[in-house]
Amino acid sequence: MARNIIMVYSETELFALMEEMPAFPHSGFRILQITNDINCPPKELVKVIEQDPIVTMHLLKLVNSEHFGLAKKITSIKQAVVFLGINTMKNLALGIAPMELLTGAKSFPWSLTSILRHSLTTAIIARKLARDLGYTETQATDCYVAGLLHDFGKVALFKLFPGRYEALLKQSENQGIPLSELEVREIAITHTAIGKLLGQRWQLPELLIHSMGGHHDSNLCATSPFLICVYTANLIADRMHRGAMYKQSAGSSLPAAMLQCLGKDLDALIASIGLIADEIDRALLLTTIREDGSMAASITHS
């Protein structure tokens, strides 16, 4: 049986690896921020979109797709705003921002769908928890973004170890071995460690760095209500994914400090969140435009 060589990285080696990573997708982030503001001037939105060729391409692909049924081919964002209206464009941009933020990729690799679904689920739940705790819409959006990005380390490892990391994810899921254990054993780095490094390198706000680097660290997360939302949302998203099996999944209860902050235990929170499958599917739909501009016929739980 071939045994994997354990690699141990120096800081320099890691940064060299990360040279291959995309730059932080600022436009996805900005779109989520500015669409939050009902008075956001249309030209600001147009500017953010136009500065990002990937978002631009995705939007143009979308508005020209068969489903849209436009009589005329749209070739620029400004033209799209004139022909479809700023509000429709704003909502479309909002729909594709998560994918932009998560992958920064020109085309979306299908094998990443399960990470995308999990990230969106976490984001939507984290935002909901923040709203339920009475935080402002801006703070709730911060939690959404933190939830969306918490597993960015996985996306990075996915790109750094093509094929191999996918096998690790499958192994973890199928055999019930904690992912971080496998990561250490097989590739000598965890998704949280690389997530933290990326967050620092991109000079992201502390909330995002902690979310990407510390979402399994309950002590760290208990120090901020926003991190509590992300930590808890991640647990709930996991349980939802496991579905019927979740009763048996042990060791995922909330620490006392978080219980106190949230005022409910995990089961009560899950009950209060209600049905969000629709919301997740809708969010996923816009992120799954194929190269030819058509959409995936159906989104499956990978």
């Binding site: 489903h67 849209f68 049924g69 479309l92 816009l286």
Partner: peptide, 8 residues
């Protein structure tokens, strides 16, 4: 009527 492109 028209298609809703945002919620598909």
């Amino acid at each position: 009527g028209a298609f809703d492109p945002v919620d598909h």
